[in-house]
Design a protein around this nucleic acid. Sequence first.
RNA 1: GCCGGGGUGGCGGAAUGGUAGACGCUACGGACUUAAAAUCCGUUGCCUGCAAAGGCGUGAGGGUUCGAGUCCCUCCUCCGGCACCA
Length: 816
Amino acid sequence: MSAGYNHQEIDSKWRKAWTEKSFYVVDNKLSDKKKIYILDMYPYPSGSGLHVGHVEGYTGTDVLSRFYRMNGYEVLHPMGWDSFGLPAENYAIKTGIHPKKTTEDAIATFKEQLQSLGFSYDWTREIACHTTEYYKWTQWLFKFLYQRGLAFRKKAPVNWCDKCKTVIANEQVINGLCERCDSQVIQKEMDQWFFKITEYADRLIEDIKKVDWPESTKQNQLNWIGRSEGAEIDFDILGKDEKVTVFTTRLDTIYGVTFLVLAPEHPLVQQIVDENYRQQVVDYIEKTKQKTELDRISQKEKTGVFTGAYAINPFNNEKVPIWISDFVLYHYGTGAVMGVPAHDERDFEFAKKFGLEIKKVVTRSMGCCCGNCSCEDLPIVEEDGAVLVNSGDFDYLSTHDARVKMLDYAVSKGLGRKKVSYKLRDWSISRQRYWGCPIPVVYEKDGNIILVDDADLPVILPDDVNFVPTGRSPLLDHEEFIDVSDKYGEGARREADTMDTFVDSSWYFLRFCDPNNAFEFASRESMKKWAPVDIYVGGAEHTTLHLLYARFFTKVLYDAGYIDFDEPFLMLRHPGIVLGEDGSKMSKRLGNVIDPLSVASEYGADALRTYELFMGPFNKMKAWSTSGVRGIRRFLDRVWKIYDNGLYENSEYNSEVDARLHKTIKKVTEDTQSFDFNTAISAMMEFINFVEDNNSITLDQYKKFLQLLAPYAPFLTEEIWQKVNNNNEDTFDESKSIHYSVWPEYDESKIVESMVTIGVQVNGTVRSELTVRADESLEVVKEKVLSDPKIQKWIEGKIIKDIIYKPGKIVNIIVE
RNA sequence: GCCGGGGUGGCGGAAUGGUAGACGCUACGGACUUAAAAUCCGUUGCCUGCAAAGGCGUGAGGGUUCGAGUCCCUCCUCCGGCACCA
């Protein structure tokens, strides 16, 4: 422990005072004041509590919240809990302790940690998605999507772990293995609920341009949606009254088709297969079903079988064999592809393996690049300057032009059509798990779907459920929950699956606008005032799922007229991962986890907060350093010492200190807003160094400096602020707090320096320096520079060709 | 493989095309102390040199420019995402 200010006393005193005065509570009344909504991704309350890495993001948003309050904004800065989810249920399976209990205990721990660090959340708006008050509206939103035709039910494969006897979520499948027992996960067909996010694919792509998000996150989303433009072409099947439709983005290569491949799951396979080949086809389909995800990913060689059927290429009427293979994905495109081995690496591999013909239809116009390499033997995939050959009327066209002309031709002859395909698939939301939001659906005896009435919401998740894995949804065995025959008629049963927790988190940011509303998910007025989120901060691991789902929900609500914005998060930033002192990821196993509360109790919450942001650029990965925290603490102690030794009372006004202060105000104001917290803190350190070197700071200057530091170190600055203002702590309120004081403005005229020191170069290498008026003329500078002995040494006997002078920056003498 | 983002002292990192290494840590030297901790002062990119000074330096190699960490091209490497997507 260092000497200096008593953080234990000061931290707890102000935490208490701010809480008592409901400092950060905001209302929903529309006002003329500027407003800003600053949000952290709400955490999953895990049993192990927060470590210092989690706190970086929360510190960033808190600094911004405090900064904007001081700049006259009404700030909505809430916190809540993503409290449904698998870890609590898995823990319950292991220990028998109810998820509700472990979750609520964890929430208490998290809350204590956050409050100790002085985060200025409006706790009257706290939400938790496992509460009935919250999930009533999650259920309402499910119904809302269903009514708009965006929720539907179909059979779909789920991940099944045979050892754990349970269905597990995609997130729990690690490289095809079960997260908990490392055994193989297989696919099982079950009835599932889906949300039709694919309907919004194009708007999700288009609107990403509107938001201020990290470029990589935007790219990840585009990548995930995976839009590609191409064509669907119909191939007649020889001797059958059927057609196979393929999807291709390389229509220009269609004269090179030497076979077709269907996914083994393709329904047409059964109809077209030649009887002589039926057995091998059936065997192959069966083998594919047996394969685990891991098998399919890791198999190096292509597999497949011939169906005995042939198709006719509509462009040249050639007869090509139809194969099936598991490298063709049933759920993408049409589940069928045209094989062009000369111009596609996968098709090339397949043709080589099974001895299929390879027919080249695209060539480099100037022949091979070098003439003596083997590149002509490999598929030409895409290349500038390549042209078509062996393609009938389309010969000598560039690949690009050929694509356009061939599509026109196909459309005019009725052979196919333009088509856009997406990688994005509909969002499967059914989970065969207990600890989640019940789906508000009842099935009548004949299977008819009935939505539960609004008046009967929420469908309450029962507490007394046996969640030990049996291989089916735990709620299925809760007769009282399942059996609703008295209300819905003989044989009526409730849906027993719960919703994916990503459904909860797809709309929680709206609930914060009006968290206690019992009649709507949030009032229009409250959302008009606060939403959308202006600044959103959270982990980069959510670049696709959560952030995409929330955008989808927002657009659906927008289309229905509930809200007047169609993007939920205008600005998004990701905090970088914080590594342990040893440079490896913090984990219990390595024993390098650092608890924020222990840092705060040893060095003070302010030192922790300031260090969190001083470590490095906000969005970059960096390693924790306890000696770094000590360095910050030294800095804070020096700030305290200016009060403690009364320097501000004994100083004469010093204009250089003042110029420095105004420069610092400018830097901190700009850098704080742009998330460059580390350089803002450096600037404040430089200012204090300068004050100490000059042994001068007036009260007014000191107070302005304290205000700059206040968002970062709220406790210490509040303490000094009260003392230098001689406030009576018994009558403390918002009007006297530094955190509601008016952010200092800088005076540009004080920043402009009249005298500057610039470098003097000879042929671009610095040889001397020169102090002149910032706007000194070239003549004077030239005279001074040429008479400088250090410079004369370098130009002696040489011809001066030019002198470049950029006022205030540099002078460069070009010789010889 | 494709997409995105990086590579700067012993370490974390600063630098609108204009004196690279701000700020902090570490280390070393000194002051204070009976002593230690804390605190304060000084030094700290590398090489040569007692010094003055000079040379070399931002992953590698080219280029543009009076001038490049910064802009352009080629390559190496690390991190993140996607990955048989036709």
